[in-house]
Computed example of a mutant assay.
Amino acid sequence: MAFLNYHHLRYFWAVAREGNLTRAAEKMHLSQSALSVQLRKLEEHLGHQLFERENRKLVLTEVGRIVLDHAETIFKTGDELQSLLKSGQASNRQVLRVGSVATLSRNFQFDFLKPLMGRTDLELVIRSGSLREMLAQLDAHTLDLVLSNLPVPRDAENLWHSHLLARQRVSLVKKPVKGEKPFRFPEDLKTVPIVLPSLQSDIRADFDLILEQAEIRPLILAEVDDMAMLRLLARETPGVTLVPPVVVQDELRSGVLVECCKIHDLQESFYAITQSRRFPNPLVAQLIQQVKGEV
């Protein structure tokens, strides 16, 4: 196999960063046609298409994303070489890009990623948003996996894999009050106010069904789609909060909150969502298998 032409790689890197052939050509002081020829030569050398056109914009293919990662590593290594010769220090690091839905427990995210914490050879990139936003980034190869509390349907067009990582029970928690009578579920929810996850939550739908069957209309203080906010409200509001204990594990340990009722019919599931790829990030499989082994 012929040696890789690093000039071609630099041209590709410029186009990938700009997302536009004309702007990249201007920055590289080349004609658009000349730059296009250089890109074509790189694709022929690698044997893969690196870009697709979407609405007049160049979008990286899966292979293109991999080539970009390596190109950035190569150019970063060149910068580190110069830095090493000047300061005597350099590093070489892998990258793992993780997306997380906003409704997911931050404590669970931390526990999941904990095996990677402290690794000096790894750069961990974490993004948050709606499940739709995270899946779009996964599809665009800008994320390696997505953490979610809901599985994603798999079909011929979207080859998602929803890896079940854990199932955890759900409880009602509250601030401790001395001398208070034991909480009776669901009867006490006729008078005790409650903070709930939003209607988009899987556990909320099941909880509403339990109360409906018991003919109880709860006094809802707040509905929250962010677990970090749910945790804060549990600490500050009167009444009870419906939440997986992992979300408030620090407050339960310190006694700031107490678990007043375990709801045995409710469980929250946690998934790692990946996509079928020819060149997956090897760190993803390692992490998922490690976490599954601990469940």
Rank of each mutant, 00 (worst) to 15 (best):
L219C: 04
E212W: 10
E215V: 05
R235S: 14
A205H: 12
F207T: 01
G239W: 00
V240S: 01
V243D: 06
A205E: 14
V224P: 02
L221V: 07
A222C: 01
D225M: 13
M229D: 11
I220Y: 02
I220L: 04
M227W: 11
V224C: 04
E212S: 15
T237C: 10
Q213A: 10
R231E: 15
L211Q: 03
D208T: 08
L242I: 03
G239S: 09
L209D: 13
M227E: 15
R217W: 04
R217A: 05
L232I: 09
L230S: 12
A228T: 15
A228L: 14
D225I: 09
P218V: 00
A214K: 00
L219Y: 10
E236T: 14
E215R: 14
L242Q: 02
L209M: 13
L219V: 12
A234V: 11
V224R: 01
D225T: 07
M229I: 12
I210E: 06
D225K: 12
V224N: 01
F207G: 02
V240K: 06
M227F: 12
L209F: 11
Q213I: 05
L242E: 05
I210P: 02
R217H: 08
L230V: 11
V243E: 07
T237A: 14
A228Y: 10
R235V: 08
E215I: 02
R217D: 06
L211P: 02
P238N: 13
D206W: 05
T241C: 10
L233K: 09
A228F: 13
E215P: 00
A228H: 13
I210C: 01
I220S: 00
L221E: 08
A228C: 07
P238T: 13
T237H: 09
I216N: 07
L242M: 06
F207D: 01
E215C: 02
A222E: 09
A234W: 07
I220H: 05
V243Q: 02
L211H: 03
P218S: 04
M227T: 14
D208W: 03
E223A: 12
I216D: 04
R217L: 10
L221S: 13
Q213G: 01
I216K: 05
L242K: 02
V243Y: 11
A234K: 10
I220R: 02
P218C: 03
I210V: 13
L232F: 09
M229H: 07
T237L: 14
G239D: 06
D206R: 15
R235A: 15
R217I: 08
L221I: 12
L219D: 13
D226T: 06
A214L: 01
I220V: 15
V240A: 02
L211K: 05
T241S: 14
Q213N: 10
V224G: 04
